[in-house]
Design a protein around this nucleic acid. Structure first.
Length: 262
DNA sequence: AAGAATGTTATGTA
DNA sequence: CTACATAACATTCT
């Protein structure tokens, strides 16, 4: 489910709901240990780095969450919150709002040390103000790995996943198998700029939106409201109609248009 | 109702 | 040491 835009949006919402509040935390499945240490502590700040979310408390503890492939938050705008549905790993109840978390690959308690160790191995995050673009550009410029694999490597760029990979390479006419080092400097910068644009649009809309409004290259017949992506999970290219090629790249499906991405 | 899915890490093999 | 493949794990939705 989540790429960087989902995580950043969740973090923003959670900060809005819970900042300054003392929370009631529970683990309906009993799998999250250590919650007692947060009793009485209030939320200082919630932020996101790549696909990781951190909920900081005023006693120097924090909750670290990674949604993985299936992880999901379910929001309850009314209290009391209804009975948990499914395998709820963590329930957060604030003053006016509650949130249930299910399916995360990570949900643990830590300190700043944990935050540092995680963020230290992440590449720049296109959604963060402090992102170091040059680090991304330099890293891919000297890599003979394919740009498709590089974009999925969180140490290279944090927050991009399978959908944005496909879409960002599509709009820049780049074949995913091309090595990072073989791209032009313009290509590399354009890829970064595109991820910033797409991820920001995703945060804003609350869903993935990669198709530019009034895309001049998009045939009128392809302009349906339900069309979200150019190539990802498509049979035919939204722009030119060519059959989309799909193949396994390091265990994930890679999508590209053989006509548009030469 | 089987299967696919917007992910990462640890381990094995060349 | 690098690179790639495989397994493991998380759960929901169609």
């Amino acid at each position: 489910m989540p790429e960087g835009h989902t995580v950043h949006r969740n973090a923003r919402d959670h900060q809005k709901y819970f900042k300054g509040q003392t929370l009631e935390l529970s683990s309906p499945q009993g799998r999250f240990v250590g919650l007692d240490d947060l009793r009485g502590a209030s939320v200082e700040k919630v932020d996101a780095y790549g696909k990781h979310e951190f909920v900081r408390f005023d006693n120097d503890l924090l909750i670290h969450i990674h949604l993985g492939l299936f992880g999901k938050f379910r929001m309850h705008g009314q209290l009391p919150a209804p009975e948990p549905v499914g395998a709820v790993r963590l329930r957060i109840i604030g003053h006016h709002t509650a949130v249930d978390l299910s399916g995360p690959t990570a949900c643990d308690l830590g300190t700043d040390e944990l935050y540092e160790s995680i963020t230290a191995r992440l590449g720049p995050d296109p959604l963060r103000k402090d992102a170091d673009v040059d680090k991304f550009l330099a890293r891919i410029a000297k890599s003979k790995k394919s740009i498709g694999q590089l974009l999925m490597d969180q140490a290279v760029i944090a927050g991009v996943g399978n959908v944005y990979r496909a879409e960002a390479l599509f709009v820049n006419h780049i074949w995913p198998e091309r090595a990072g080092a073989d791209l032009t400097a313009d290509d590399r910068l354009a890829i970064w700029t595109t991820t910033v644009r797409m991820l920001e649009a995703g945060v804003k809309a609350g869903k993935i939106v990669t198709i530019a409004k009034n895309d001049p290259d998009l045939p009128a017949s392809a302009r349906a409201a339900d069309k979200r992506t150019y190539v990802y999970k498509r049979d035919h290219c939204l722009r030119c109609g060519t059959a989309i090629r799909r193949w396994d790249m390091a265990g994930r499906w890679c999508y590209a248009c053989p006509t548009c991405q030469t």
